[in-house]
Computed example of a mutant assay.
Amino acid sequence: MRIWSVHPSLLDAKGLVACWRETLLAQKVLQGLTKGYTNHPQLDRFKASSDPLAYICTYLHGLADEADRRGYSFNRGLLVLPARNDLAPIPVTDDQLDYEISFLAEKVKTRSPQWYDQHFATSPSKVTHPLFTVVPGPIESWEKVK
């Protein structure tokens, strides 16, 4: 499961769809509707929030917004809550964001060379999903560094 901190606009088509599907699974985990992935480290930051389900749904709406911009059709009917704009941003460290950008760039380089050329060949902008805010710090403790 990969719930990216990077802005969805950096995700290639396969990455955006995979993130959508995996985060829908995370929504089910937070609803208690599945036995798998309940202790997945990518969920720790959502579980630590004041309202984990509201946060994961708002994250999903951000993915769907990007899909809309690209002319894709993600089914928002699968989301159990509307997006909320009153949620405090979740902090993500600058080193975590750098790691994710580098990790994503390596994945995209082979599977979507044209996307890589457009978004990663030069230094990509360090933007996060709208639900996050960047703070100084090392790679997050929940990250499994490869």
Rank of each mutant, 00 (worst) to 15 (best):
R2F: 07
S5N: 14
V6N: 07
V6A: 13
V6G: 06
L11D: 01
A13N: 14
R21P: 00
E22R: 10
L24W: 06
L24D: 03
L24N: 04
L25I: 14
K28T: 03
K28Y: 03
K28I: 01
Q31H: 13
L33N: 15
Y37D: 09
Y37A: 13
T38V: 12
P41W: 06
Q42R: 08
L43T: 00
D44E: 09
R45W: 00
R45Y: 00
K47T: 01
S49K: 00
S50K: 02
P52F: 00
P52R: 03
L53T: 05
L53E: 08
Y55N: 04
Y55L: 06
I56Q: 12
I56Y: 12
L60D: 07
H61K: 11
G62A: 12
A64N: 09
A64V: 11
D65R: 12
A67F: 11
R69F: 15
R69C: 15
Y72T: 07
F74R: 08
G77Y: 10
G77Q: 15
L79K: 01
V80T: 15
P82Q: 02
A83C: 05
N85F: 13
N85G: 13
A88S: 07
P89F: 02
V92R: 02
T93S: 15
Q96G: 02
A105V: 09
A105K: 08
A105E: 12
K107F: 10
K107V: 11
V108M: 09
V108R: 07
T110P: 04
T110L: 13
S112W: 10
S112M: 12
S112D: 15
P113C: 11
D117C: 04
F120C: 07
A121L: 15
T122L: 15
P124S: 06
S125H: 07
V127Y: 04
V127I: 12
T128D: 02
V134P: 00
V134Q: 02
V135N: 00
G137A: 06
G137L: 04
I139F: 02
E143Y: 05
